[in-house]
Nucleic acid binder design. Structure first.
Length: 840
RNA sequence: GCCGAGAUGGCGGAACUGGCAGACGCGCCGGACUCAAAAUCCGGUGGGGUUAACCCCCCGUGUGGGUUCGAUUCCCUCUCUCGGCACCA
């Protein structure tokens, strides 16, 4: 649903000091005294052999301990009524309780959690709720296959997935959890339905649905697999069938959905949305048949009206039967049946030859009065526009193909630029000048569109009109495991909405529900549910037995999380005003493709190898911190990609190194030299440069590069530790900064090490480290010396060097001398604190 | 077909506003430790040429062109990959 797609991460401008920081790291490294190498290893070795097992990094124990403590202390409970700080609402896709979390969930959620934790440390009042999208077909399938009741199956899965989600160590506020299959939740689906019904936005009509002939059931779109359109469960080709269905009139809001002015959506998502809505401007043109019927045709090119030489109706068009000449009825019927039998994929194949059929009737051209034939053809779709078009072969490729096949005339009415008056070799669909168009001759086609529409309106034969590809939302499912639609059918009063005070209409969970579908909702066979009384007259009546699409649940869950009293209202207005809009949503369009990929892979693997990419074993082996950090490290988050665990060792090693940095003594025995002023400066420099890098990366949701920076900092600190003894203030600042920056990414180990350093509980309630630009500043830089754009030398110079001096130094370098070869420079380009390019 | 995103070592990926391409990690190679292996630690690692060695040189960010002192970065062409839409009138 369009409303589900929220904005992606913003891209703040970013300033990195990467090369500078790197130089600093190297510098710190270079300070490593030769003594280190020479130092005798023996004592260190023995001590390492004796001591190590006791204090090795043991993720499982640490993680369990801190998770318990956080839970006890309610560390992640958000007081929604606290107005003190700037709010930040993180929303992530709530999972379907399929039974097991897969790696795609972790991929979507860990970076979200890291971002949420980062915001919290930056002083925001963060809300990060979690829940379950608990209605849906898999529960019913499980019931059919294994005889477990959908409710039981769902609840069992939710219990397991809660445990798995907790093992991630995310800062979800479980006190606000929502489970959509609970009456307190779905009663509001029903309530919304009733409001829509009253406003005329919920209506019922006959509509074609996907139908599996073997399972005797209606399928949701996502249950129809692949281009072959096979049933998900039994791989039988799906067919179309007409059934009475409930709809929400979302098309009424199409234009509103296209207005992005108040949205902060990415280009890509806007395009998707625009595509999806498919707005077309044009005109509705009424052709009268000779029998007097009005045929409404939609066209985006009213300017080509004078070139219309035939009318095409969709085979399903309601006028087909009325208009067909008696002697052609049989054949028309045959063609219509053939078209209906085709699967969508055949019908919609663009390269297929156009087929059509003259139905033996004619219509009158509204402007010229010409007599033009009425045909039916399967390239016209009932579901779009009016289901009828005017055929303008000279200016539409499909009409061209159709006209050529059936030898219809193709008069040119839009002259292409520089047209020589000769017949065209193919359809010309571009803009041009109107010709052979009576009073409109000479009008540019762009203006003609408007003018022709006005003319039609003036004579009552049409008007300017807009159509959309977007259809109304079909919300009914002939299924058991969903929200009952709160409607009652009375013989006397027809369709009667359930009174609001009677909500919720409870989905019966007793054993009398038969799940094997008969092409109708299983609820139809549940007499106690089915039979009720009419709210108006009190006489026996029947309930609607269809249930709602699960998208209804998820279209408002961001409100439900903010609700503290689901019994009284769907959401709390004051809290909604305070907390919405959602500040960051993950799980939308981009990550959806990742989850799909992970899902596909999992499917494939389960088929071929009998195993699935499950996070649990990984967590047991590496710990949640490593798994989280690895998922964030592998690449830019929004690019996704297939799951591949090679490389996870690198992340594990990093956390290990951070562990030893804090926990272990320096390798070398005996006193280290006191750190020199230069060493202290260099250490603080790398610390503060890293703070800057990591802060920028966290802001930009670039966890991969944030982790790289932290790895570099860890290395630099480890080397510094071996090289010298730093004053407690300096060393403390450095190690604290490292841990604080690790906290969002690897929350458990950061908390543990923080505690060991004597830090106040909890690290997750500390402020994000402040960046000191003074400390980060470099004293010198490497001036690149180029001759004709190629690097020929480098020279280390002080920061803030003037151009004249830089030029002097650069020209004096051996590299420059060699390539200048005595020639005088023609031009010298100086880029401040970067390079000098000498052009000869 | 249309729209969008992308293409950088053996692999995942990095690169500010046009300024040292390949950060960080994996893998691989070499070394230390070990009876040995694992683990750990240290060093190396784009390709080619040249050298006894150090040095040094050339090529290199999908293709071809352009702008520029200088292009992974900006512009145009083409190829391929991924995603969306697709007989939408």
């Amino acid at each position: 649903m369009a409303t589900k797609i929220l904005s992606k991460t913003k891209k703040p401008t970013k300033t990195t000091t990467k090369p500078v920081a790197r130089a600093a790291v190297k510098k710190v490294a270079a300070k490593k005294p030769a003594a280190k190498k020479a130092a005798t290893r023996k004592p260190a070795t023995t001590s390492r052999r004796r001591a190590p097992r006791r204090d090795r990094y043991a993720p499982t124990a640490i993680e369990a301990r801190w998770q318990k403590r956080w839970e006890q202390d309610g560390l992640y409970r958000t007081d929604l009524n606290d107005h003190g700080r700037k709010k930040f609402y993180f929303l992530t896709m709530y999972p379907y309780p399929s039974g097991d979390l897969h790696i795609g969930h972790w991929y979507a959620m860990s970076p979200s959690d890291a971002a949420a934790r980062y915001r919290r440390m930056k002083g925001y009042h963060v809300f990060f709720p979690m829940g379950f999208d608990a209605f849906g077909l898999p529960a019913e399938n499980a019931a059919i296959k294994r005889g477990i009741h959908p409710y039981k199956w769902t609840m069992k899965n939710i219990a397991n997935m809660r445990r798995q989600l907790r093992s991630m160590g995310a800062m979800f506020d479980w006190s606000k959890e929502v489970v959509t299959c609970m009456p307190d939740y779905y009663r509001w689906n029903q309530w919304f339905f009733l409001q829509f019904f009253k406003a005329g936005l919920a209506y019922k009509k006959l509509a074609p649905v996907d139908w599996c002939p073997k399972d005797q059931t209606v399928l949701a779109r996502e249950q129809v697999i692949g281009d072959e359109r096979l049933c998900e469960r039994c791989e039988t080709p799906v067919v179309k069938r007409d059934l009475e269905q409930w709809f929400f009139r979302i098309t009424k809001y199409a234009d509103e959905l296209l207005d992005f002015s108040k949205m902060n959506w990415s280009e890509r998502v806007q395009t998707l949305q625009t595509n999806w809505i498919g707005r077309s401007e044009g005109a509705e043109i009424i052709f009268r048949s000779e029998s007097g019927e009005a045929i409404q045709c939609f066209s985006t090119r009213p300017d080509t009206l004078y070139g219309a030489t035939f009318i095409v109706l969709a085979p399903e068009h309601p006028l087909v039967e009325t208009l067909a000449a008696p002697e052609r009825k049989a054949e028309v019927e045959q063609y219509v049946q053939a078209a209906r039998r085709q699967s969508d994929i055949d019908r919609e194949a663009t390269d297929k030859e156009k087929s059509g059929f003259f139905i033996g009737a004619h219509a009158t051209h509204p402007l010229t009065g010409a007599r033009i034939p009425i045909t039916i053809a399967d390239y016209v779709l009932m579901g779009y526009g009016t289901g009828a078009i005017m055929g303008v072969p000279a200016h539409d490729e499909r009409d061209w193909a159709f006209a050529k096949k059936y030898n219809l005339p193709t008069p040119v009415v839009i002259a292409p630029p520089g047209w020589d008056g000769q017949p065209l070799a193919e359809a010309y669909t571009g803009e041009g000048t109107m010709v052979n168009s009576g009073p409109f001759d000479g009008t540019p086609s762009a203006d003609g569109k408007r003018m022709v529409a006005q003319k039609l309106e003036a004579i009552g034969a049409g008007k300017a009109a807009v159509t959309y590809r977007l259809r109304d939302w079909l919300i009914s499912r002939q299924r058991y495991w969903g929200t009952p639609i709160p409607i009652i059918y009375c013989d006397e009063h027809g369709i009667v909405p359930v009174p609001e005070e009677d909500l919720p209409v409870i989905l019966p969970t007793d054993a009398r529900v038969k799940f094997n579908p008969q092409g109708q909702s299983p609820l139809l066979f549940h007499k106690k549910f089915l039979n009720t009384t009419c709210p108006i007259c009190g006489r026996p009546a029947r309930r609607e037995t269809d249930t709602m699409d699960t998208f209804v649940d998820s279209s408002w869950y961001q409100y439900a999380f903010l609700n503290t009293n689901m019994k009284a209202e769907p959401f709390n207005r004051a809290l909604a005003d305070q907390w919405l809009p959602v500040d960051q949503y993950t799980g939308g369009i981009d990550h959806a493709t990742m989850v799909e990929k992970a899902g596909e892979r999992a499917k494939k693997m389960s088929k071929s190898k009998g195993n699935v990419v499950a996070p649990d074993p990984l967590v047991r082996r590496y710990g949640a911190d490593t798994v989280r950090a690895f998922l964030m490290f592998i690449g830019p988050w929004d690019q996704g990609g297939p799951w591949d665990s090679s490389g996870i060792d690198g992340v594990r090693k990093w956390i290990n190194r951070a562990w030893s940095l804090i926990v272990e003594r320096p390798t070398a025995k005996g006193p280290r030299p006191a750190a020199s002023d230069d060493q202290i400066k260099a250490l603080r420099r790398v610390v503060h440069q890293t703070i800057q890098r990591v802060t920028d990366d966290m802001e930009a949701f670039k966890h991969n590069t944030a982790i790289s920076a932290l790895m570099e900092l860890t290395t630099a600190l480890a080397r510094a530790k071996e090289a010298a003894a730093y004053p407690a203030t300096v060393w403390g600042e450095a190690t604290r900064a490292l841990l604080l920056m690790m906290a969002p990414i690897a929350p458990h180990v950061a908390e543990e090490l923080w505690a060991r350093l004597g830090g106040a509980y909890s690290i997750h309630q500390q402020a994000w480290p402040a960046y000191d630009p003074q400390a980060a500043v470099e004293e010198s830089f490497t001036l690149i010396v180029q001759v004709n754009g190629r690097v020929r030398d480098r020279v280390q110079v002080p920061m803030g060097i003037g151009e004249a001096r830089a030029r002097e130094l650069a020209l004096a370098t051996p590299g420059a001398q060699k390539y200048l070869d005595g020639k005088a420079p023609r031009q010298v380009i100086y880029v401040k604190e970067k390079l000098i390019n000498i052009v000869v």
